[in-house]
Simulated assay, not measured.
Amino acid sequence: MLMDFEYMFSGLSAFEVECKLRQIIENALYQKYGDKPDELIKKRIIDEWAAMERSDTVLDVAALYELAVWLKKNNHPYWMRGCAGSSFILYLLGITFGNPLPPHYHCPVCHSVQWETDYLDGFDLSKKKTCEQDKATLIPDGHNVPWQTLWGYGEHVPEFDIVLPKNLRDDFLVILKNHWLRKKESDVSVSLKMNSEKLSASLSNISFVFRLECSSIHKTFHSKTVDASCVNISLSAWQTLLDYYDGYNEQSILGTNTFADLISFSGIIYATGAWDDEAVFMNRYLDYAPSELIAFRDDIFHYLIVHGFLDKDAWRGMNYVRKGLDLPVITEEMKHSRDKWVLDRCKRIEYLFPKAHAVEYIMFRLKAAILPENTQ
């Protein structure tokens, strides 16, 4: 099995790895969004690359890409938990499954992009809209996950957590022990430990957890495409999709009618303090859909951006709330705006999930067990 593993960046200097990775990203970007990508998309790439350099994780991303290519080639299922799905670069490289850009249409022929600011998730856009220029059917996409939730602004080192099949642990240990990243950085080590739940290994800032049971995962996992056409089946199978089987009661969440609601539902049920009596009242009696409530740390970021905060300050405020602390700065405008209810919610929250984790897990579950095996 290990004979076909290709160390794609072995023998290269750190500078050469960066140059090669840049070219791979550029090729992937042009393949998806054409040779003249939208300005906002180009800015996203520039901002993320700068954040990767600040956090010194460019080599980690190269190693992840190398591993993802091998996993797909050998049809090994996996998914990235935590905040990794926030990165558009990781998505372009095929490491993560969900497109974190804001909701938009893009044309597969002329590669034009139309941003749709009235929607919370691109999968909820109409599937029948056509391009005015070439009449091609437009592709709806984008789950609106800010890159800051992974990369930050240099105050922390991002962590990349990848969940893998149990039967890969021995092979992966060999791969990691002979890895070029381990040889390139003297402080990088490979560790393997056993506890009551799982076997795990690590390489630099990448952690591997071996817990997937391949017998329960469709064999056509990597050949499936999760896109906007999957919304109906996602909503009809939401309990299986989210592993949520609590019976109906007066605290049950209502109104899971869109893909945005489905994603938010998963954030609400795993957060601490996001689903209390007040949130129940808002959902049940004031008709707030799950996607209109505070479900993720990312919701706090977007809220602060709407109220005029700079990206870095919004990221700082988000980190306060997600850890159970109140917003560090509250303006007079926020106190009197229509969404002033958010301020009270921030005081009640003890922990908020990253939206990227929810998106990636839902994508994984759709590919692993929900979508028919012949879906491509």
Rank of each mutant, 00 (worst) to 15 (best):
K20W: 01
E155S: 12
E278H: 08
W315Y: 15
S215Q: 14
E132H: 11
L366E: 08
L92T: 03
S10H: 07
A62K: 04
L12G: 01
E292N: 14
P165R: 05
F281V: 00
K36S: 12
L343A: 05
D121Y: 04
S186V: 13
S126W: 01
K127I: 14
V17S: 04
Y91I: 01
L120T: 11
D35C: 02
L164P: 02
M334L: 10
A51D: 02
R81D: 09
I362C: 05
Y33F: 15
S291G: 01
A50V: 10
T117D: 14
Q23L: 14
L176R: 05
K198G: 02
S207M: 09
L310R: 10
S13K: 11
R81Y: 00
K43V: 02
D4Y: 10
D118G: 11
A228H: 11
A201Q: 15
V231N: 09
P103W: 06
E48I: 07
Y248T: 11
I263Y: 03
A50W: 00
I41T: 13
I41M: 10
K135L: 07
E53D: 10
L67M: 15
Y105M: 09
E18C: 03
F281T: 11
W341V: 07
E48F: 06
F281C: 06
W70L: 03
L241W: 05
K166N: 08
S236N: 13
K367C: 04
H76S: 09
C346D: 03
N257G: 04
V61D: 05
L93C: 05
P372G: 06
L173E: 15
E39N: 07
I25F: 05
Y105W: 10
E197H: 08
E185V: 14
D287C: 09
N167C: 10
E18H: 08
I263T: 13
V321A: 03
T258L: 10
K355M: 10
I370K: 04
L2K: 08
I45T: 02
G317C: 03
D276I: 04
K127H: 02
G94A: 06
D38A: 13
S207D: 15
H218I: 02
L90W: 01
S216P: 01
L254Y: 12
